[in-house]
Simulated assay, not measured.
Amino acid sequence: MEFVDTSILCNLLEVPGKSQDREKVIAELKRKRELREADLLLPVTAIIETGNHIAQLADGHFRRLCAERLAGVLVTVIEGTAPWALNEVEWNAAHLRALVDGGSTGTTLIEHACNRLGCGDLNILVERDRYLARTSGVTATIWTLDGLLASYA
């Protein structure tokens, strides 16, 4: 299993200012699909963060265009035709506790924030941890272009 990070989703959707590695990401997605190297999961966090990046675009034309692309991707997830499945998480006290505790990283949310690992990236790690806890015999990594997040992936 491989969780798709916001950096990958932004490149695929060609979000201005967030898609400088688009060709590389598209080629890697094609390679992953052809080789069936790993099943891809789309974390809820990546959807929310990508939507926030889109909403913050200054140019209304690009804001609408990217929002339409994001909505289109979400529809493919709903229909089961996307190259990934949605990682369904239960947002509850246990999830928040894992987030505050830093998941399996051994470092708390506070320390991660001080070291510039954002809450969204930490939550992707927690989503992965919780996925692993409810499945057996599976490994899961994170497909990301973010160096700090990759160090935990």
Rank of each mutant, 00 (worst) to 15 (best):
E14F: 11
N87A: 13
L70I: 04
I142G: 07
L65R: 13
D39V: 08
L29R: 08
S104W: 07
G106P: 08
N52W: 12
T135P: 06
I142Q: 12
L145D: 07
I54G: 01
A113Y: 00
A85V: 12
I47H: 05
A85M: 14
V100E: 09
Q20R: 13
Y152A: 11
G118K: 02
L12Y: 11
E37W: 13
N87C: 09
L35C: 05
G106Y: 12
L145G: 06
V15C: 04
V100M: 12
I8K: 02
C66L: 04
G147T: 14
A46C: 04
E2N: 06
A58I: 06
H95I: 00
L70Y: 09
R97H: 15
T107C: 08
V15D: 03
L13T: 06
I110G: 11
A58S: 14
E37N: 06
E34G: 00
G103A: 10
R33F: 10
F62I: 03
I26Y: 11
V89Q: 14
P16A: 11
R31Y: 12
I47G: 01
A150M: 13
T144Q: 10
D59C: 09
I110P: 06
N115G: 12
E88W: 08
L145R: 08
L41E: 07
K32D: 01
V126C: 04
E23T: 15
S136A: 12
L132F: 11
S136P: 01
E111D: 15
A58P: 03
E14M: 08
T139M: 11
V4P: 02
A27H: 10
G80W: 09
H61T: 13
Q56F: 12
P16T: 07
R128V: 00
A46W: 04
I78G: 14
V138W: 04
T144P: 06
K30A: 09
L132P: 01
G51D: 08
P83Q: 06
L122P: 02
A98D: 15
G17A: 04
L65M: 12
L96Y: 12
P83V: 08
L29A: 04
V100S: 07
R33T: 09
A85P: 02
L96M: 12
G147M: 13
I26C: 10
R64C: 05
E127C: 04
D121W: 05
A82R: 03
S19P: 01
L35R: 11
L57D: 01
N87H: 09
C66Y: 11
R63W: 07
I8S: 00
S136C: 05
Q56M: 09
G80C: 11
V100N: 03
G51E: 09
E14T: 06
V25F: 03
R128H: 06
I47Q: 04
A133R: 11
S151M: 12
G120P: 05
E127L: 05
V15Y: 08
G51Y: 13
S136Y: 05
